[in-house]
Nucleic acid binder design. Structure first.
Lengths: 166, 166
DNA sequence: GACCATAATGTTGATATCAACGGTTCAATG
DNA sequence: CATTGAACCGTTGATATCAACATTATGGTC
């Protein structure tokens, strides 16, 4: 009885350090956030002279298409919340790098396209990206690169939208 | 002459779609952001009933130590900017899950510790984490899991601080 | 044509992320 | 003990992220 109570109290009040280590060493979410933050900093640092963040670079690049994509298309491609995309477009729109236009075929949709200035920015940024990409590659053993990207793609939820209902 | 000019103009005004595909398929930053966003959503969805986000769970878990760590310790462990940690602690402090105390040994440092309520929250969240972790594991081929975590750790910049100078 | 379910997007509020700047404390040097 | 450089941290402003709610447009049904 007493020992049971004691163990119950202990269970309610403490969490063994071993469990913390288990989470710290294995949690996919934590590992991904760590790696994503550190890697974003690499690309951010490299792109800063151009006035672009890594996310802005990725977004601009995803707009370089023949057919201007819709918000939903891009949000899905980046595995990004739809409303996050709306927010991220604002600074780029303000700077005249991106344009939004109502789709005449379906007036609910907005078509996103690069402006001349946006394309120019991308072209300037490309060699910076190549250099940073190579630097980052050196952190990951060559033999792992392909598999790593495949695993990340799988975790990213594939090409399908992250959530249909919303 | 004419063709040279044409090619120059073309280079300045357009970016081949193939380059876009090269970036989209290979960029470590983009792949990591995608995977990190999608995975955070998994854990966020699972933890929402408890009122915790994935980041808050990771942060609380990193505070479950014998010796209360300093801000710098934790920021380094999470590969997170120091000032981001300050911001992230505020809601947890408001809810009484975390306490900050000036280190008497070095009054520049703050020691972070869990409150009773914080530990209780962690204990409640643990089975949710285990379940979500297992779900996520099913997305990554078993044979890759160990290697994936190792690569992510390498990308995360190891246990050293992300930036010394600032 | 009115009605309704669905689809695509916008808005608001809360948290997350980081650069730039500023304040305090420590430790070493003279 | 005064100075000085470094270490640790907070604040501010800008962007990023997402849930909840609201708006507008489309397509189909009656």
């Amino acid at each position: 009885m007493v020992s049971l109570l004691k163990s119950e109290m202990s269970n309610r009040r403490k969490l063994p350090v071993e469990v913390t280590h288990e989470v710290r060493d294995n949690c996919y979410c934590l590992h991904l956030q760590r790696a994503a933050r550190a890697t974003a900093r690499r690309y951010d640092d490299a792109l800063r002279p151009l006035g672009l963040t890594s996310g802005q670079f990725s977004l601009l690049m995803s707009l370089n298409r023949v057919e201007p994509p819709t918000m939903g298309d891009v949000a899905s491609l980046l595995a990004m919340d739809r409303t996050t995309l709306t927010a991220n477009l604002k600074p780029l729109e303000r700077r005249g790098l991106v344009e939004l236009a109502v789709d005449p075929e379906d007036r609910r949709s907005r078509r996103l396209s690069l402006t001349e200035a946006g394309r120019a920015q991308l072209i300037t940024a490309l060699p910076v990206w190549r250099r940073t990409q190579k630097e980052t590659e050196s952190v990951v053993p060559d033999s792992h690169a392909e598999r790593l990207r495949a695993d990340l793609t799988a975790l990213g939820g594939g090409p399908t939208p992250p959530k249909s209902p919303r």
